[in-house]
């Protein structure tokens, strides 16, 4: 037993070092300026640098929109799959896993091609305006669409694990025999039992969108990750400080999401 504990602590310590050393190095690098001693200038500068607030806000908006769209798309689809066509599950699983196989660079190349081709051929139709609208730099819908596709594998897996843990057909039938219509059965009987899975899916999507660089950069938008890279060229310390801060922001958001999930559990009890 003692030996096992020793092993556990050893592994735990190694893992901790692996994660903490780079992080600590980053923090030290940002606060320990040669010749000036310890200073938090790098962090105070962040707020002053142009684009910080707007890019972070854009990333958060994109994340929220992506979470909403991907959940609205996947939850009904997967519940329907469970109830109506369990045999199609492997097909959907493969389709949802494709974004893992297709590299983002290839994916974005495809999107760019479509975005170029569309306006050329549709310039005389109302669809032209659609193409313009989804590329609005204030809120690029095309990024949401791309992120929804990229989040599919993670959302699929999170929801699938959640659905495996409950007996969806029986819960729906029990609710229906209690006088619940189809939508009521889904919202009141199935969704509350998927809360963990929904939170997991949201976590993963949030982390994905906040950290996504390739697609946003190549399509020419400036969410948070792109902004970090852009400022890093000129001000090394500032860019690392921003990375550390973005890490903290992500953690904070995840904690808020987790707290939100925990609180809704207690309210449903009352």
């Amino acid at each position: 037993m003692a030996r096992l504990n020793l092993w556990r602590w050893g592994v735990f310590g190694l893992a901790g070092l692996y994660f903490l050393v780079p992080l600590a190095a980053s923090v030290v690098f940002t606060v320990d300026v040669p010749g000036q001693g310890l200073t938090v200038d790098a962090y105070t500068q962040i707020v002053g640098t142009g684009g910080f607030g707007s890019s972070l806000l854009l990333s958060l908006e994109l994340a929220l929109a992506t979470i909403a769209v991907v959940l609205l798309l996947m939850v009904p689809a997967m519940v329907a799959l469970r109830l109506g066509a369990p045999k199609l599950r492997p097909v959907v699983e493969v389709v949802c896993s494709l974004p893992l196989v297709v590299p983002p660079i290839a994916f974005v190349a495809g999107i760019v091609t479509v975005l170029k081709w569309g306006p050329e051929h549709l310039s005389r139709t109302p669809l032209f305006q659609t193409f313009v609208a989804i590329q609005n730099p204030d809120f690029p819908v095309v990024l949401v669409l791309a992120y929804v596709v990229m989040a599919l594998p993670f959302v699929y897996r999170a929801l699938d694990a959640g659905l495996r843990a409950i007996d969806v057909p029986t819960l729906v039938e029990a609710a229906r025999s209690c006088g619940a219509s189809w939508p009521q059965a889904l919202v009141q009987a199935v969704l509350p039992n998927l809360r963990g899975a929904l939170l997991n899916a949201s976590f993963l999507t949030l982390a994905l969108v906040l950290g996504e660089f390739t697609v946003a950069q190549l399509l020419g938008f400036r969410p948070f990750a792109v902004w970090i890279v852009n400022v890093s060229g000129s001000q090394a310390q500032l860019s690392v400080a921003v990375s550390v801060m973005s890490l903290l922001v992500t953690w904070l958001l995840l904690l808020v999401l987790a707290g939100f999930g925990g609180r809704s559990r207690t309210t449903s009890r009352g």
Binding site: E173, A175, P192, N193
Partner: peptide, 13 residues
Amino acid sequence: GMVFQSYSLFPHL
């Protein structure tokens, strides 16, 4: 009213 073979209570309530 129906009672099912498998336990069908709503786990969240």
